[in-house]
Amino acid sequence: MTRPKFSWLGLVAVCVLIGTVLPFLVIIPSSFTSGAYLTFPPQGFSLEWYARILDRPEFVHAFGFSLQLASVTAVLATIIGTLAAIAMSKYSFPGKAAVNGALLSPLVLPALILGIALLMLFSRIGIAGTFIGLLLAHLLITVPFVIRLVLTGLSGFDYNIEKAASILGASPLRVFWTVTIPLIKPAIFSGGIFAFLVSFDNVTISLFLVSNKQTTLPIVIFNYIQDSLDPMIAAVSTIVIVVSLVPIVLIERFYGLSKLFGLSERSETP
């Protein structure tokens, strides 16, 4: 296949792709407007609306809360998911297929239903609207991603390497730390980053589980834009876009985004 010269196919494809990034092409420039209203194209240039965010404690607080929630979710999901993935990849045991299906099933069910189910459970046991409730919910939807990613990283893993380490005198724990973990580090790392991203951006489940005091940034934006649209919210959105973009670029660098979505044609052996 040569470099595409001109093709109608390419033109149509590029038009569709522009459509999918259109929201960002509109939001980001208009957040720098110096005008009083949200317009596109923006008028002039200023950082005024970014400064205005600081006058709104609910945004600042929600931003901190979201970062905190996403970070804790990422760390715990990575640990839980990696352990489970190693068990699934390394051992065969009765009912393994069922366990595998069950572990990934939270991704299959609509977020709406999960959100409702968790709201009902959490209000019964009194953790609705708390950090711990949100954390559990976010873990539920991020652990399957980590499992899937680490499993991909482990596919083709030569377990003889572990045997080799073990016969050389390394205890199981030492084998795990000096051989297994270093070899699947990119997958684990990407799993954690992706968990952060999923948690930081989530609206559909969080919406059922937040309270007035403990709320995430996307929820605050969701509530705000139902009433009013102004350049300040464009500035907030731009910040969210940037915070989301950093993990995306990290995953692309360390692992490859397409692998994340099962598009890898040639999987590299670790």
Partner: peptide, 30 residues
């Protein structure tokens, strides 16, 4: 007795070298 306490040497069909270690580190591992 677990393998790591048996004091054996083993060579595998798939080589099974530690891919993240140099030749020297591989050999020094044991």
């Amino acid at each position: 007795i677990p393998p790591h306490k048996r004091g054996l040497g083993m060579v595998f069909q798939t080589y099974s070298l530690f891919p993240h270690m140099s030749v020297r580190e591989n050999v020094a591992y044991g």
